[in-house]
Amino acid sequence: MASNSYFSLAVLFLAALGFGLAPLVLAWLWGKAFSPAKPNAIKNSIYECGLESRGDAWMQFRSAYYLYAIIFLIFDVEAVFLLPFAVAFTGLGAAACGAMLVFVLMLIEGLAWAWAKGVLTWA
């Protein structure tokens, strides 16, 4: 078994796991031995900014929120692409600028579509 070339890898994996788990286990044992748990009704209640929670957590959200989220995400990701482009802008040719403009225009087209559909109207 020791002749297996993957054996050292398995040992390393277990060691890595041990490094991660040992402090957690030690802390748990310490807590078990020295610091007694003192649960009470207030402590165990659901955290809701200090207010008493009321109602059910499983409630429905309007689907319009998801459209907002998706539009936000698209433009968020766009910024990720735009930033490296802007940094390297001076070293790029006209073709790169054109490609970027096409990309931005495509996104703007999507926004215009959403606008025209009335997605951005809050009601």
Binding site: K38, I42, S45, E52
Partner: peptide, 13 residues
């Protein structure tokens, strides 16, 4: 005040 006291209670020792 009740909210502050409740939050204090919800903190771990």
């Amino acid at each position: 005040a009740p909210q502050v006291v409740r939050l204090y209670n919800q903190m771990a020792e």
